[in-house]
């Protein structure tokens, strides 16, 4: 487990040399978002298609508080994490009572509830144009206006989030969630209150999404309507699956690939979501199990070759 961590550290240092700091920051922000989504998708086996609800709500609320009330960065982060967890608790409460396909459809429908609220509430959210003018307030005398300093801040928070998620997945709570994923009936029979643990997974995942949402708003200075749309929810599912939902590092690799892919495609063609759709279809057809598994398969194939 030391090796992936070292690789991540190296990438954090090398990334700003290769791409613009804004994109580098976006990668780690999206990775935090992915870590939260993967707690549901990968560890609990809950296919939430509404993760942008928590991401977007946090971005709007914390962004508004920074913009209008001038709160500092620390308070903004706390507010974002709180809103993320709270909105996830509300959505989760309704969703965990149903399972399977109903669950997926409910997460999507409730995502639409939040989306259309943001879409119509133009006096606050700016509707389709997004909410501009989100500042990047200083924290403890450190000015985040410099994109590289902000990048360092984001990277630090990402490492913190990664460490925290590692501890959560290895904790008894993480084990219970995985037990629910493997066999819900058995977990129930053993005496665990399954809906309550699913709800807890929602809340923790929502808190991570909220953190990512605030950082995103601060990074671009605007909360686009897209941040609370089903498109974002789909993107994080894709990033998690392409990385490999079975591992802690899957969504990190996934967001790396996804942001890089979408950034390079979106500059080439306005209709790039079409290419994204094609990418989704191709991954499902040929790359099930994600990059982590493909990597492992490649190495086992190579080592078996060398033995021959």
């Amino acid at each position: 487990m030391k090796k992936p961590f070292l690789l991540i550290l190296i990438s954090i240092f090398l990334l700003p040399l290769v791409v613009r700091p804004a994109i580098a920051s976006e990668i780690w922000i999206f990775a935090i978002f992915g870590l939260g989504a993967n707690l549901l998708l990968g560890y609990t086996g809950l296919l939430s298609f509404g993760q942008s609800t928590f991401f977007g709500s946090a971005a709007y609320v914390a962004g508004w508080m920074m913009k209008v009330h001038g709160i500092n960065a620390f308070l903004a982060l706390v507010a974002g994490i709180g809103v993320g967890a709270l909105s996830a608790a509300a959505v989760g409460y309704l969703c965990v009572q149903r399972s399977g396909l109903y669950f997926i459809m409910l997460t999507f429908a409730l995502n639409q509830l939040f989306y259309f609220t943001a879409y119509q509430w133009t006096s606050v959210t700016g509707g389709e144009d997004g909410m501009p003018g989100v500042p990047r307030p200083a924290l403890a005398g450190i000015d985040f206006k410099d994109p590289l300093i902000y990048y360092a801040f984001v990277s630090l928070l990402f490492l913190l989030a990664l460490f925290l998620m590692k501890r959560i997945t290895e904790s008894p709570l993480g084990k219970i969630l995985q037990a629910i994923r493997e066999n819900e009936v058995r977990a129930e029979a053993v005496g665990y209150n399954v809906p309550r643990f699913k709800l807890l997974a929602f809340v923790v995942g929502g808190a991570f999404s909220g953190l990512a949402g605030v950082l995103y708003a601060m990074l671009f200075g605007i909360v686009p309507l897209e941040a609370i749309s089903f498109v974002f929810s789909g993107n994080v599912v894709f990033a998690t699956l392409i990385g490999g939902s079975g591992s802690l590092y899957g969504p990190v690799i996934g967001s790396f690939v996804f942001i890089w892919l979408s950034e390079s495609m979106s500059t080439v063609w306005a209709r790039w979501p079409l290419l994204l759709g094609v990418a989704f279809v191709l991954v499902v057809m040929f790359l099930r199990g994600g990059l982590v598994e493909a990597w492992t398969r490649f190495w086992t194939w190579r080592s078996s070759k060398q033995r021959d």
Binding site: G234, F238, S245, P273, L276, G277, F280
Partner: peptide, 17 residues
């Protein structure tokens, strides 16, 4: 369901675009 979802969602993107 995760891969089925990703597939039909990708399809929806292709069709909408």
């Amino acid at each position: 369901h995760d891969y089925q979802l990703l597939f039909t969602f990708g399809l929806a993107l292709i069709l909408s675009e």
